[in-house]
Amino acid sequence: MVVRTIVRLTLATLFGSRRGLLLYILPAVFVGLCVLLALTVDDKSGLQVALLQQFGLAVILPLVALVAGTGAIASEIDDGSIVYLLSKPIKRSTIILTKAAVAVGVVLVLGALPVLLAGIVLDPGDLTTAVAFSIGSLVAGIAYVAIFIALSVFSGNAVTIGLIYSLLWESVMGQYVDGAKVLSVQQWSLALISNLTDAPRVESAVKLPIATILLLAVVILGLTLAITKLRSLILSTAE
């Protein structure tokens, strides 16, 4: 019952604001662009991988995860409505983990599945690559959600900081700067994708075992920090 209430409140927060419109607009623009290119471009060799990696995985997915991750809790902290949950005998871990699960569900539906659809549209004959990018996108989305939820609990400027991180670090540094690639969620997910498909030009700067460890570490660390910080928020409120 408690979890159901948190889920309901989180979904209302995510989709009850103007910012929630981005959750529909971003994947719609991405899929629409892929449909347009599929219908108008004659030479489609490499088009599927290029768009899924450089636009879907590097831009659209982090932004969807940013809106979902920060929207799950940041707005409640900003307007003080989080006090409603904090005043109840609910474990702080339950609050964070439930909100993270809702955000991951949103990333699955509005991030990973559009990537799958876009991959199929771009190359109906290569379902393996489309599925691989979809799975990789979901895995990356889980890591992003953990990062953005932790950021939301620690900073009142979570959206701004997260936007800079998504567009600068993941979209630019994570793709083109060798030293930064090792610390990019995008590269970690590409390590998984490259092992799920034989498509050319799908490469990662990180080996899969290391990428798996780093992904797990980021998820565990992000959620742990968020839970710990949320406990201190209730103490501050009580004082």
Rank of each mutant, 00 (worst) to 15 (best):
I60M: 14
T40F: 11
A50I: 08
T13P: 00
K44E: 08
S17P: 00
F30W: 02
Q48C: 09
T40K: 06
G20S: 10
I25K: 03
A12S: 13
L52K: 01
T13C: 05
P27Q: 05
I25S: 06
L47D: 05
D43W: 09
L11Q: 12
T13Q: 13
A38Q: 01
T40W: 07
R19Q: 08
F55P: 04
D42L: 15
L22Q: 07
V35C: 11
I25E: 03
A58R: 10
S17M: 05
Q53I: 02
G20P: 00
R19N: 08
S45N: 05
I25A: 11
L11A: 14
Q53P: 00
L21E: 03
L57D: 09
A38C: 07
L39N: 11
L26K: 06
G32K: 01
A38G: 15
R18N: 12
A58L: 12
Q53S: 10
T10F: 02
K44W: 01
L22G: 15
L39F: 04
T40Y: 07
L37P: 00
A28R: 04
A28S: 09
G46R: 09
V41L: 08
I60H: 03
L51I: 06
Y24M: 06
Q53N: 07
G20Y: 05
L22P: 07
F15N: 12
G46H: 06
A58D: 06
V35I: 14
A28M: 07
T40M: 09
L21W: 07
A38Y: 07
L52E: 11
L52R: 03
R18A: 14
G56K: 05
I60L: 13
F30Q: 01
L9A: 15
R19K: 12
A58G: 04
G16R: 15
T10Q: 06
T40H: 07
Q54D: 07
T13E: 14
T13K: 11
L47A: 01
